[in-house]
Every structure is written in C-alpha cells, then in structure tokens.
Design a protein around this nucleic acid. Sequence first.
RNA 1: UGGCCGGUAGUUCAACUGGCAGAACGUCGGACUUUGGCUCCGGAUGUUGCAGGUUCGAGUCCUGCCCGGCCAGCCA
Length: 567
Amino acid sequence: MSPEPSSPSGEGRSLDFIRERVRADNASGAYAGRVQTRFPPEPNGFLHIGHAKAVCLNFEVAAETGGTCRLRFDDTNPAGEDAAYAEAIADDIAWLGFEPDGAAVYASDYFEQLYEWAEHLVRQGLAYVDEQGAETISANRGDFSTPGTDSPWRDRSVAENLGLLRDMRVGRFDDGAKVLRARIDMAHPNMLMRDPVMYRIRHTAHFRTGDAWCIYPTYDWAHGQSDAIEGVTHSLCSLEFDAHRQLYDWYLEHLPLPGDRPRQYEFARLNLTHTVTSKRKLSALVDGALVNGWDDPRLPTLRGLRRRGYPPEAIRQFCAHIGVARVNGVHEIELLESFVRTHLNRTAQRRMAVLRPLEVVIDNWPDGRIELRRAPNNPEDPGEGEREVPFSGRLWIERDDFMLDPPRKFYRLAPGREVRLRAGYFLRCDYAETDLDGEVTRLRCTYDPDTDGGQAPDGRKVRATIHWVSADHAVDAAVALYDRLFTDPVPGADGRDPLESYNPASRELIAGAKLEPELKKTAPGEVVQFERLGYFAHDPGTPMLFHRTVGLRDEWANIQKRRQQSS
RNA sequence: UGGCCGGUAGUUCAACUGGCAGAACGUCGGACUUUGGCUCCGGAUGUUGCAGGUUCGAGUCCUGCCCGGCCAGCCA
C-alpha cells in the first residue's frame, strides 16, 4: 500500500505553514493542547473539488494532532439555502472518507446567542441601527482613496438603538428598512471595518428556524462567534477572507467569550485547469444544459467525480500532494488524473471491451468450437484471481487496432501481420474485406493453435497484444467518453466568457460497444479497467452504461499527436 | 487611486530560517512486459519577478521598482 493520503510527511515533505502553526500552538500549550477545526459550507449548493481541499485540510489537520473537526453549516442567509443541500454535502463528506465530530451543527443554532451579543455591543456603544438605504450606505462607505462619511444615525443613544434593534427583531420593519451596524471607523483603510453590517432584515423563512427570525446575521457577524461558541481553535478559510480577519478579531475582542479566542488562517483555494469551480459558472453549465445536471461526470463536483468513477482515496492523495500555501495558482488536471490512475491500477479489475467493433473471422477455427479462456483479474494483484472469457471463431476487435496501410511504429494488426490476442492465441490477418468506399468491413484471419498460452514454440515474437470479445457472447453496452470540459487551460483567463471555451466534444456517447459477458456482473458504481482503453465506471442508475473515468497513458496516441503537430 | 497578500523548472510545491536550488506530475530516451498500461533506469528543463545593497557567502536579510491576486454586497 502506498503512503497514507492524510500524511503530509508521507512523501518526506516539510509541514505547511498551517500545520507548523498548529504544532507550534500545541508545543506552547495554547488552547491547553487542544486542536479543533471545522468545515463550514453554506448549504446552498454542491461541493466540488475545491471544497475537497478544504475538507481534507480541516479534517486531517485535526486528526494528525488528536483534535476534532466538526461539520458546521453556515446558514445565515435563508435565500437559496436548503436542507437538501445540507444532506448532499454531508453525504459527499462521508464519501470522501471523513467523519465529522458529532452531529452536524448550524450557525442558526446560535442565532439567540448572536442576538444577545449584538445587544451587548449596542450597550457598549459599539453598534447602532442605521436607516440609510442600502444604496446610501454603499455611497457613504467611500472608496479606496476616500474615507467614508458617518451615518446621521451613528450617534443615537444606547436606549434608542436597543429599542430599534428589538423592533427589528420582532418584525416591525420592512426588508431593508434598517440594519444593525458595528460602530468601528468610517475612515478605516480596510473597507470591511467601515461600520460593517451585522444584521439585515429579511422576512424570509429559514429552512431550519422557519419564521422565528426576520433578521439574519451577516457572514462576518456569525462566523467568528460560531467558532468561539464551539471552541474552534484554528479557523481555516480561503485567501479571499484575508481582509476579513481584522473584523473577525475585532468582534471577538469586544465580546464576553466563554473560552479562548479562535484564530483565522487563510490558504489558497484550489483551482484546476480545463474546468471551473465557481458556483456561478457551474450553474451556467447546468442551467444551460451544457451538462446533464450537477452529477454530470464532466463536472468537478464531488457528485460528478463520484459518478465518473474517481476514487475518494485518489482525491485525498491529490489534496495531500498539492499541499497548502498562500499562493493562488492553477493545478494541472493531469496531476489529479495521475492519482486516479495510480489508485485504480492497483484496485480495478481488468475486463475486455471493444468500443468500435471490427469483425474478425478466424477461418481455421474449428466450426462451432467455444473455449473458455482464463484471464487474470488484475495482474497487479494475483490475489484477485482469474475469470473465464469465452473465445470463438468470430470476434470483435477494436477498429483502431487494424490499419490497411500501417505507418511506421504502428505495431498492431495489418494485412499479413501477426498479433497476440490477450489471453488467447497469435492471430494473423490474411486479408481485409472492404466495401465500395474502401471502408474495412471484416477481417479474415488465421490463428496459430500452437500459441495457446500466448507464446510461440518456435520463438517468434509479436509486437502487440490486442483485446477482443467473442461476437456470439458479446454484451451490448453504451459507453460515454469524456474529454476536457473546457478547451482553455484557464477558461475566461483572457477576460472572455469562460463558456466560449466550452468543449462541445467533452462527451461522446458510443452506443454499440461490445463487452465480455463477465461485465454483466459489474456492480453499480464499480470501476473496472477495460484493457488497453482506460478505467470505466458502471453508472449507478443505468445498467449497461459505462463512463470513462480516465484513459490509460497512451504512447501511440502521443506519437500520433506529435506527428500531427510536426506536419 | 489606498490597504493587504503573494512572486522558486511547463505546473504545483520543497529548500532544516544565511551554506552545493530539489521533488512530484508532465516531457524525452532506454530496460522490462501476454495491456503501446504497470514497474525500473536515465536525460533535459531555472537570470529564484527586476535592480541595487549588506555579507566570506543571499531564494532566504535591507532598499527601490515591476507583475499578479483580494478588498468599495444588507453574498459567503
């Protein structure tokens, strides 16, 4: 077995800055040696590969130091949030292989405490009810080079603010009529510190609290306090929250907290080439029917990757390998794929399938004879045993494995050439039947009975071994082939609409694939290797549909590509 | 335009905090092979963003500049 995915030191690498910090805190006795993290998604969408990095980081950092990691839904904005998303997210985390500490919690669990603390700030003169409209507040915030201007409501009395806040809570005002703001500094160089909004009025039902509340806390007002309530020690988030740390700390400094103060640390989010992860762009693909739903195998959503056949172990190994830093970059999707291949090479059973069938008739095969050939399930793991594959005088082989006029370095079948049939015999092509267009319709071949077992007693060699399926035993199936979702490495990098580089050829459905009969037994969701073609995942819902997870490394394809480029 | 964060092979990250710039993936070549897969061996790839300075010695420290990202939601 390869090094554990969760161990960042498994590759002999040094610790990243977050793990270094956590260990330093532990060593210095901070938080009494306790480590607690959390994964805090908003339940308004599905998790994608970028979230996987955060999930792995939070859970693994905690586990490595004997700490705990909770799943907390950041449900502070009822618009768009739904219990169904929360369930899907919890399910995806479990699939990835992590078990949150205890039952999932919700920021909405703390609405009452948050409100009490809001009154506390009001009483300290550190928060006030503003009734400028949203537009005015925005205009009065100033900009990067201009300080903001104080709201005319900034200096109300504590009593008046308290009364107004209570009126807000009981629903005396319309949406947007008033907000509660922290009273910090309208000239602060950090725009977030210019009297940030803590509560907005929304007469909208919340999926958990129903209509108990009509004021909802903003992210900044809820997040750090939720961390503090739960006893989080290290609050990890992505780089764009860097500027929020100052506010995070400000709120915590001015509140009577039950315990130690959590600290926020930011790391670079994960970006992958040839795909997108922003909710907006993902939605555009789904809504525009450019993909088939949120679990389309082309999508970088966890549900998509799962359906595509990506093993969770490979995703975890990938996340461990890329590490964590404060530089925003783009990872090559090839790296992720290489982890998928490495894992699947060890674990996936081998089968034979012909995607684009070409008929082979073996003229010297005894009439009506059927042999059950034994083939290893996984040469990488003899413990996986063998299976029987029926062999007969009429076979399907891959069209790509035959050429009438083979170029240099093409080692496969051609008129007069001999190859080995995997787990079968040597096979020579005597001639190719063609139609009026010159299209090859059928191959007439002879096999060498002395090559049973795969070797010729006379010592002659073949350059290629090809896969095959007995025509009379073949099972029909549909196979979906996938390519890059976007042709550009970084869609939209040049300022254009990312969708412009959407790859219409990202999915190709092959209806008439021929499978060896053993493949009928493949479990839903199971991933197998179609020999010489790649790894394929059996669709969880549709019986005879396979999705190509990832192809094998293909040297012949590389040769062809190079030739194309040089010509 | 102000503030903050960042800049090391093609890509993502290292470099024990001042001591010979490395790894993985990719790429190229070879060996092996009943998968053109896997495995193994080897090669190539760098003005460490730029320019100065300190030092016996700078990716690392100092100064200036350049480039990229984030911030002006009652989104998270």
